[in-house]
Design a protein around this nucleic acid. Structure first.
Lengths: 325, 325
DNA sequence: GATCATGTTGCTCTTATGAGCAACATTCGC
DNA sequence: GCGAATGTTGCTCATAAGAGCAACATGATC
């Protein structure tokens, strides 16, 4: 393409997109045939001179979604743009909204839904519309009794999700992390707790987020872990937690003793799930997001554009061999 | 439009613009008829959810150009976007390029072109392609002999423009501003000078920029004015200069004594010109740009998006009466 | 300077999109 | 609860845009 053709392409694009002229009109104006105009416009698009953006709080990034699906073998991916977001909070809110939209639009609607808890899940629950599904039984998949402030948040999340789908809720009446392994073992055998855990295993869909290894963690807020516990986890290579279980970049439990004191679904059970929807967004969660998608810890990822780009940025871990034909 | 329709419109827009699907395919995907999809897309556009931007160094802003033409009764306006410009220098460069493009694409090509001088004009001259017109005689319209540094710039600008159009050049062999009115009067009567000035009056097209009232002024650089002269002009209400003549916001000469010592085309002669192309861009020139367009000192304005927006921002000076049909 | 490879042009034919319209649904005042 | 007003739907018909192709230009190679 010559330089003057490039300039013509830009003039044509201006008349086409800004001025809503037809290719034929542009042809007359620029003394070209309408086919030439069509070709110029096609080239302008192909060379990336035309940028089309959808500006709306509910907009998504289909390109990135497809890339994530292909790269990490996900069943689905939801990516929300960050371009016009004012702050991190807005990104969180939009991701929660997107997760709610996604959950509500799933066909067939889940009959039994296993849910975790935390700030993110709480937001998702708030944003689900009433009647988002005909009837859903909600069950908690990890211990949820807060020890101090924010008491009842875990419960209210599950309750809200169930209520808005005219369903029942089964709460896990146990702390998230027990002090001694023996206590955890015995509470696990308790009829009420065991029943909920068994029911949780029958869920067709799981919905959860992931936590970071900082003092902002919901586990510190809830009083299950101390800042020094967090430091210790960090030293052991933890990049975050999924349903309360702290893992490293390879997806391995970093502290098996702590893990044995943690009550709820195991990571293997999560991995075996037909559908595991992980909602993970924001700069601080890039590392844990990577650990989750590279280790099969979810089948559906709801995230933001920046996180998606980071996940896709690094060289393919298993570079595809150049096939012959 | 209901809320769920809005969401549908966004989904449809994503599939249409990001995924290049046809409206029919989208219809199948979202369980809608293709007409509904078309209407949703039309609404998404109408509501401003679809933002189409042309990203290219030669791109222009046709909407603003039209607005400027209508608002200020210009024959033409060229507005270049600032969105993806790194700094002020790039904006200046793009405006110069746009002015060169515009001048080169004018039909019929000018036979006699009157030019001013300065940083901006120099850049325009550089960016004109060789052979931009079949044959153009270039004539200087205001005094152009620099007193100190940058000697020869005024001359080289005119020479370059003429050379690239296989034409001749007629330089104005005189300082821009004389020290005494009598000197100016007598040099004006000089055969050589008078001849050039007469020829300048026959030009079909004039090309010039505008200067600011600060120490950055080309007149200070060239040694015609001192910083204290500039201060005095400012106190008298000057907002800038056009072909060396300092005016206020109303387009009036602020210092008639200085003006009488300034050699070159008068503002009235400029106002009477069939075509006067003014190239005025950058934050510091907003005021003088306004003075130029509101006082008929150009018929064509080449500027940047920010300046254009400022010019259009203020309430219409003569608000259009609401007509009844 | 003949030959071939390559790219460009303006067409025909096909497909996609938009305008206009009658039938239908919804909302509002009474 | 009735009818008018208004908005929505899915169609027919008209227009715009795209795919594919033969003819032509261009420029490199021998």
């Amino acid at each position: 393409m010559t330089d003057s053709d490039e300039l013509l392409a830009i003039r044509a694009a201006e008349l086409y997109y800004d001025d809503d002229k037809t290719q034929d009109e542009i042809g007359t104006l620029l003394r070209l045939t309408r086919w030439k105009v069509g070709r110029l416009l096609a080239q302008a698009k192909a060379r990336g001179f035309i940028r089309i953006e959808i500006v709306h709080p509910r907009a998504r990034k289909l390109q990135l979604e497809r890339a994530l699906r292909e790269r990490f073998g996900l069943a689905d991916a939801i990516v929300i743009p960050v371009a016009d977001a004012r702050d991190d909070e807005e990104i969180q809110a939009r991701c929660a909204q997107a997760a709610a939209d996604y959950l509500a639009s799933r066909r067939p609607a889940p009959r039994v839904l296993g849910v975790s808890w935390g700030r993110t899940l709480h937001e998702v629950a708030q944003r689900l519309p009433s009647g988002w599904a005909p009837h859903v039984d909600v069950v908690q998949i990890n211990g949820g009794v807060s020890l101090n402030k924010r008491a009842g948040m875990a419960e209210s999340t599950a309750v809200a999700i169930a209520r808005k789908a005219n369903g029942t809720v089964r709460l896990l009446p146990s702390p998230a992390i027990l002090e001694r392994v023996e206590t955890k073992r015995s509470i696990e055998r308790d009829r009420a707790v065991a029943g909920v855990l068994n029911f949780a295993r029958t869920a067709s869909v799981y919905l959860y987020s992931a936590g970071v290894v900082t003092e902002d963690s919901a586990h510190v807020d809830s009083g299950y872990l101390t800042p020094s516990d967090i430091e210790a986890l960090k030293r052991k290579g933890a990049v975050g937690d999924v349903v309360g279980r702290y893992i490293n970049a390879a997806g391995e439990i970093v502290d098996s003793e702590l893990d044995q004191r943690t009550l709820g679904l195991s990571l293997d059970q999560l991995r075996r799930a037909a559908t595991g929807i992980a909602v993970i967004a924001g700069r601080p969660k890039h590392e844990i997001a990577r650990a989750v998608v590279t280790n099969g810890l979810c089948t559906v990822l709801v995230t933001d554009e920046a996180t998606a780009l980071t996940l896709l940025a690094e060289l393919d871990p298993s570079p595809s061999q150049p096939h012959q034909q």
